[in-house]
């Protein structure tokens, strides 16, 4: 853990535990084969997350998914993809260590998010996500529930983002 959980101003900011994460890139023709090997569906609708076999895949771009699984699942994911590589060429690159995972949740979470995200958050429903920018910092955000967001941020940007989040938490706690 790199920071302590804190609740104030109607939001809780906490760090989420590590998980096995991969950047998966594959074209239309080979997508089904890779999806089959991984045991989940791979949608080509940007922003939509699918799950299966204890794994999740968030579509970030037309040929790009961020794949996540339990921490011990990395070797199995790598092996599953390697098994179909020759027939269905793709790119699987482990990025488990690249990001810090932050959860912001609570009744005031939309106000917190609206201090940094220029997107219309009402268009991102539970189970959906997107790569975007939070106050100048590139992030992948996922709406887990109506009042709960997950922010995946590159490790070195995390202190800056957290500095912002904790500052706004104090602002929200002021009630003004």
């Amino acid at each position: 853990m790199t920071f302590d959980k804190k609740t104030a101003g109607g939001v809780t900011i906490e760090e989420l535990p590590a998980e096995a994460r991969f950047s998966l890139r594959v074209r239309d023709g080979e997508r089904a084969a890779v999806a089959g090997a991984l045991g989940l569906e791979l949608t080509d609708t940007v922003g939509v997350m699918t799950s299966g076999s204890g794994r999740k895949a968030l579509c970030l771009g037309p040929d790009e998914w961020v794949l996540s699984g339990a921490p011990g699942d990395a070797a199995a994911i790598t092996a599953a993809c390697a098994g179909v590589y020759d027939a269905a060429p793709h790119s699987l690159v482990e990025i488990s260590e690249r990001e810090i995972f932050i959860r912001a949740s609570g009744p005031a979470v939309e106000a917190l998010m609206a201090t940094g995200v220029a997107r219309d958050l009402s268009r991102i429903g539970p189970g959906q996500g997107a790569r975007t920018v939070f106050d100048g910092t590139p992030v992948v955000l996922v709406r887990e529930k109506t009042d709960s967001f997950r922010l995946n941020v590159w490790r070195s940007f995390a202190p800056h983002l957290l500095g912002h989040l904790f500052h706004v938490q104090k602002e929200l706690a002021s009630g003004l």
Binding site: R25, R27, H90, S91, V93, I95, S96, E97, R98
Partner: peptide, 12 residues
């Protein structure tokens, strides 16, 4: 070209 690029600057 069948090739893809991934930033791993912060993976390592």
């Amino acid at each position: 070209l069948k090739v893809w690029l991934t930033s791993t600057t912060e993976q390592w």
